[in-house]
């Protein structure tokens, strides 16, 4: 029972933190400082577990897996908000709403690839990291190609 309560509280804290960042429109804690803080906390937790008699490899693996779960909880809210955004911005906003949707799809792609990269690193799955990185490299080209295609097809329709 205590494990479920921990997971619930952990998920709420992570999702609330991400939600506050989105609500503010900028980072509450700078990403470099946040990364440093997470690494320090992870090392401290690993040391505490090791001093309490847990095997070192098991402790590192467990803490890394908990952080990977946190990264996935953090990716949940942007994904849902991007889906709501795709619903929200319909055709009534004019022809240029395509670029807004393109940005939202870019958010979906970026969140998916970043979650794949960081979760893959933390659970020691290098195939996941490789695919995520390949996808992360291809995202800007996709967005650019789509926006380019829409721009030229729209100009063509205006001429006709």
């Amino acid at each position: 029972m205590i494990e479920e309560i921990f997971v619930f509280v952990y998920a709420i804290i992570v999702i609330l933190f991400v939600g506050l960042n989105i609500r503010k429109g900028s980072f509450i804690v700078e990403p470099t400082k946040l990364l440093f803080l997470v690494i320090i906390l992870s090392i401290l937790a690993t040391m505490v577990l090791y001093l309490r008699g847990v095997d070192l490899y098991l402790a590192i693996k467990s803490i890394a897996k908990i952080v990977a779960g946190g990264i996935m909880f953090a990716g949940t809210l942007p994904m849902i908000l991007a889906g709501i955004g795709l619903f929200r911005f319909g055709d009534e906003f004019g022809p240029n709403i395509f670029y807004v949707r393109n940005h939202i799809v870019g958010v979906i792609d970026a969140v998916a690839s970043l979650v794949m990269i960081f979760a893959g690193l933390l659970i020691f799955r290098l195939d996941l990291v490789a695919v995520g990185f390949f996808f992360f490299v291809l995202i800007p080209f996709c967005g650019n190609a789509l926006a380019n295609a829409y721009y030229y097809s729209y100009q063509r329709r205006l001429r006709e």
Binding site: E3, E4, F6, V7, Y10, A11, L49, V54, L58, A59, K61, S62, I63, K65, I66, A68, G69, G70, I71, M72, F73, G75, T76, L77, M79, I80, G83, A112, V115, I123
Partner: peptide
């Protein structure tokens, strides 16, 4: 216990992310 906790956290994190996806 800690491994079970980590597995549970990862499972629910991945499951929630799958629902959002």
């Amino acid at each position: 216990d800690i491994l079970a906790l980590a597995e549970l956290t990862f499972f629910w994190g991945a499951f929630t992310f799958m629902i959002a996806t």
